[in-house]
Design a protein around this nucleic acid. Structure first.
Length: 278
DNA sequence: ATGTCTCAGTCACTGAGA
């Protein structure tokens, strides 16, 4: 199975590029973020014409997540247990949930498409929301793994955190001032390891950015960020045979500001792909 | 210069979000 994640920054603007890429890159399952539309506005036809079913969660012109798959999807879930809500000017516990998480099972892999809140500024209420979102996601993922020991879980998407200094190429981002690089955000990201989830792309692609701002010639200068990830349970990590970041998708006409991140998994029941141990 | 991009609301712009 070839599994990918891509923050598409409006699927209505980008569906031609996205479907062309799905077909040409021979991708089975694509988790998308920032589709920026409601369900009735999603361009289903080009996906279906190319052989992909789509499940999605979109509430407005903001956020929005989806999964396109040419393999059957089951157990579709909108949002995760304990996901916090947010409403500008209101921080109550019953704030409405945003369209930032959708899960589905493909084969024996539980796939999540996740769009973690940006944070906006270190002292903005959105930053507290971001940290609570990450902690709740790690907690729910740990709980799921305890209930499904050994199973393959993939948390994919735009985490809006730059985990390491070498993932930071944007010179305008200042430690202590900028979002995405603060110790609190990095701690919240690294806590997924304690929850049993590792970055399954990093061992195969140790360097490389997944996002370049549209402003300030960030892509031509290669001043990007690595903020899009595929985190996997041990049961998923054991099956990863290849991974890549498709930097070329930042080129050409009307690109997203993010590029796809891809992993290849061998089938759990396919002994031919595994070393034989006697 | 928040120097670019996207969408809503409304129809040439502003506001919001990233």
């Amino acid at each position: 199975m070839r599994l990918a994640t891509w923050n598409v920054n409006s699927i209505r603007t980008r569906h031609g590029r996205v479907v062309d890429w799905l077909v040409n890159a021979d991708v089975d399952v694509l988790a998308m973020q920032e589709i920026k539309c409601k369900p009735e506005q999603f361009p289903l036809e080009p996906f279906e014409a190319a052989g992909y079913d789509v499940v999605l969660h979109g509430l407005s012109q903001w956020n929005g997540v989806a999964i396109a798959s040419r393999l059957p999807m089951t157990d579709v879930q909108i949002g995760f247990a304990g996901q916090p809500g947010f409403e500008k000017g209101y921080e109550g516990a019953d704030a409405p949930l945003e369209a930032r998480a959708i899960g589905a099972t493909v084969g024996d892999v539980r796939v999540w498409s996740l769009y973690v809140p940006n944070g906006r500024a270190l002292d903005d209420p959105h930053m507290d929301y971001k940290l609570r979102f990450l902690r709740a996601l790690a907690d729910d993922s740990a709980r799921w793994q305890a209930e499904n020991p050994g199973a393959a879980l993939a948390l994919t998407g735009d985490f809006n955190v730059v985990p390491f200094d070498h993932d930071l190429g944007d010179p305008s981002m200042i430690p202590g001032v900028s979002t995405h690089i603060s110790p609190a955000e990095r701690d919240a990201f690294h806590a997924f390891e304690q929850a049993g989830l590792t970055d399954v792309v990093r061992p195969l692609v140790p360097e490389g950015y997944t996002f370049w701002d549209y402003k300030q010639l960030r892509f031509p200068r290669n001043e990007g960020l690595r903020i899009d990830f595929i985190l996997g349970s041990a049961g998923l990590a054991d099956r990863v045979v290849d991974a890549r970041i498709d930097r070329d998708q930042r080129k050409g006409d009307a690109p997203s500001d993010h590029v796809p991140v891809v992993v290849d998994l061998h089938d759990d029941d396919d002994d031919d792909d595994r070393p034989m141990i006697f």
